[in-house]
Design a protein around this nucleic acid. Sequence first.
DNA 1: TCGTCCCCCGCAATCGCTTGCGCACGGCCG
DNA 2: CGGCCGTGCGCAAGCGATTGCGGGGGACGA
Lengths: 318, 318
Amino acid sequence: MVTMKEVAALAGVSITTVSHVINETRPVAASTRERVLKAIEETGYTGDAIARSLVTGGTKSLGLAVSLVSHPYFAELIAAIENEATQSGYSLVLIDTRESAESEQAAVRMLRSRRVDGVLLTPTSGSAALPELRRLGVPTVLVDRLSLAQDTDQVGPENVQATSTLVRHLADLGHRRIGLVTGAPGVPTTDERVLGYRLGLGRAGLKWDEELVAQSLEPLLGKVSGLVVSDHQVLMAVLGAARAHGVRIGTDLALVTYGEVEWAELVDPPLTTMAQPVEEIGRTAVRLLLSRIADPERAPETIRLAPALKHRQSCGCH
Amino acid sequence: MVTMKEVAALAGVSITTVSHVINETRPVAASTRERVLKAIEETGYTGDAIARSLVTGGTKSLGLAVSLVSHPYFAELIAAIENEATQSGYSLVLIDTRESAESEQAAVRMLRSRRVDGVLLTPTSGSAALPELRRLGVPTVLVDRLSLAQDTDQVGPENVQATSTLVRHLADLGHRRIGLVTGAPGVPTTDERVLGYRLGLGRAGLKWDEELVAQSLEPLLGKVSGLVVSDHQVLMAVLGAARAHGVRIGTDLALVTYGEVEWAELVDPPLTTMAQPVEEIGRTAVRLLLSRIADPERAPETIRLAPALKHRQSCGCH
DNA sequence: TCGTCCCCCGCAATCGCTTGCGCACGGCCG
DNA sequence: CGGCCGTGCGCAAGCGATTGCGGGGGACGA
């Protein structure tokens, strides 16, 4: 690799000067700067982030520990984060925690040994990683899955009001028996959506019936005329089950769901969905992380971004 | 951060010894090793990849420059690559080239300055990055999109035979007018699939008619009874167009497509698809890259992995 | 008792860069 | 003409690890 030494030699200056013209960290005579720049050009010098990091302490890189990289929602999230990070001159070290607490732990250690300047994390339930990060003072922001204790920076979707809106929509269409199919129990997102579901019922003057909440479609069959599906994974299962049982979505069963998917318009009927503001969540998360890196003393912030209702036909509307 | 110095002090040895017990690079008396390990435990020492890299030259990290991170197919690919890399003790620096040659160039420079040990690249068409990597001697493997010149390691799907199979399937069902909707022109994958399409026609005793090849569904309407769709992006468009024009897939138009999608079973009729061996492509790519890193003199290898036909109903079968 | 050989381990150079200090040189003021 | 101040640069000390080389001491054979 080309080093500063070679550049310096070619330009006839010391490496100190080369460093200063590169970083613009102290005035350099115009003519000297010219020579240095030319030398850089000629040698194709790119700098060595490793060496620089060793002395500055920073790496201009962020760790991104995602629970399931192949998930389409996370894919979008990753893309959004990558864009924002790149724009800000940071690069991303990606690692898949595979929803496992151990992997997460290992991931965090690796990121730490790579000295990333900060970490973006979608925590798994039994996460031991978070306390560790906190203890080590690594700037961290939680993405998508938020912790109840608001002692860490975090950004994710608003769930309670949004779910309530979904329920209200069904209620406004005249449905009195509205069910909920929930995602993995134990994760905060699920709990919040259940809460929103209850809230929506209340607002619509309907009462809560725990029989109408399940983790799959089957137990609800025949009991409900309207259904809220609370995440992507279960949506697939629900749609499959509906097909298997000959339940016609939109007519036999009004359905609204979380998880905007690219194929929402391609199934019959097109799905009415709550679309997460993925793009914005990603962007915001990076910004938040960067400002925390800049000022570690800031008070932790929790940002909730409102999803948008994509109104199509699975709810029975036309 | 905890440094080797602290560990050494606590254990009452020199940092040399600490280094040697960590890397097992020379025998250390059992009792000494014990003390060192205990000290490591107590201090929570994790090592500093940065410092290590500076001296060893390697970083145990791979660069992954993908053309479109949010694309579901690439998401799976990334996940597969991440898994394999992690298993081998490497971490991934992810960067999105956004299908642009400049971004790609910038990406490569960044990866280089980060001294990644190797690069996995899904090249864009006008890629200037590849020659640069080659010139710099950075171990590189091309993924998914292959270059015709087989002078670089590369792994991707087999396209010609697979597309031919698709055509044959339609022909076997009795279709005589079989169309092709292609993806972006200019990328090798597209060309190969067109080739496979011609090959399939030939084998079925049908003749090539350039009117039956287009980049969208519309120009083909009324002309064909069977259709091969050559990639995910256009699939979405074709399905949308079919719906808009009231064309019933499976009955009015037999359809087979590239791009296995998670919702293949959820649309009506379920899609007959050619499923790329994503998982395997990712794994193989990493392995190939690692073996190149191990032995830079190896002859370049091109590996094609066969996709699998997922037979469902959109082709008109039952 | 002395020389040899091994076993264990520490010294110090090195990787490529940033940065606090301080020197040299010229111009200006008194 | 001497002292001061600004401007422009270079010296050298790290950053935290790896690693070639060499030294000390105990065991063993002669």
